[in-house]
């Protein structure tokens, strides 16, 4: 079955559009996730989405509401991101220590809640994603997220870069690094909530972390880093989806393995042809 045959199916078209929207969105967020040492943070947010879904079921059953689980995950992820940021400024504990106990604590709570609700069967979808269940509503949410992220980076890329490199210099320029950190964390939380259906809690951070990591290995300037991360973000998900459909492989893991292959290629090329330090 070639790509033309696959495109006759709605679920496949939605999956590819999903990949084309989420791939570059997560890749551009991933540039700063990498530069700011927040890879573990994004992984923790993805895993804690389990708890968001479980709490959503509990609220729905208690109130009779029937809201989309993504909304609960979005709210829970944002609150968790803000909470971790708030706590990191008010405790002597390191950021990754806070992330570690938030991560394990929320996963434990999520699994217990899902077990209490008797929803074990949904665990696989939550953990590994189910990209073919994407519909127009998911695509709309992903498009809105892409636009918000695009606007944020077009207006805030300069201050965010300076705040990441040298927070004190940024403060002297009138930038508020803490506020930018919160805004950026919220965007990562939103990407996790919106992208959960594509790759699931276990694999989602690959979509955020790996394109930018591969680009960082291969580039020396910021412009080339952004350009390569975006290019990889656009190309890798459709390649993974197509490979999974043609080779009959699970889609989420196939997308992640394509990411890993690209990362490995960049690293090998880096070893064979070290970057020049000047041009």
């Amino acid at each position: 079955m070639d790509l033309t045959d696959l495109l006759r199916y709605d679920f496949m078209r939605y999956a590819l559009i999903s990949g084309l929207l989420l791939g570059p969105t997560c890749a551009i967020l991933g540039v700063f996730v990498n530069l700011r040492g927040m890879a573990f943070f994004s992984d923790a947010l993805a895993h804690s989405a389990l708890t968001g879904v479980a709490l959503g079921f509990m609220i729905d059953s208690a109130t009779g509401w029937k809201l989309d689980p993504t909304i609960y995950v979005l709210i829970f992820s944002c609150l968790l991101a803000l909470g971790m940021g708030w706590l990191s400024q008010r405790t002597p504990l390191a950021r990754d220590t806070i992330t570690a106990f938030t991560f394990t604590g929320s996963v434990a709570l999520g699994v217990i809640l899902i077990s209490m609700l008797g929803k074990h069967r949904m665990l696989e979808g939550l953990l590994f994603g189910s990209i073919y269940s994407n519909g127009p509503a998911d695509i709309t949410r992903q498009a809105i997220l892409a636009v918000i992220v695009l606007i944020f980076f077009l207006t805030q890329l300069r201050p965010l870069t300076l705040a990441t490199l040298d927070p004190e210099l940024a403060r002297a320029r009138g930038i508020r690094p803490a506020l930018l950190h919160y805004a950026f964390s919220l965007l990562v939380a939103a990407a996790v909530a919106v992208g959960l259906k594509m790759l699931g809690a276990l694999l989602l951070s690959a979509l955020i972390v790996i394109p930018a990591a591969a680009a960082r290995i291969a580039t020396t300037s910021f412009r080339s880093l952004i350009a390569l991360a975006l290019l990889l973000g656009i190309l890798i998900p459709p390649i993974g989806i197509t490979a999974s459909a043609t080779l009959n492989l699970p889609t989420g893991p196939a997308i992640v393995l394509v990411h890993i292959a690209v990362l490995a290629i960049c690293q090998v090329l880096h070893l064979l042809f070290p970057k020049k330090s000047s041009s």
Partner: peptide
Amino acid sequence: DKNFPLTASEFLAIN
């Protein structure tokens, strides 16, 4: 960060 991918002229641009 020695691996921060920013050139000298880009550093001026963000300032």
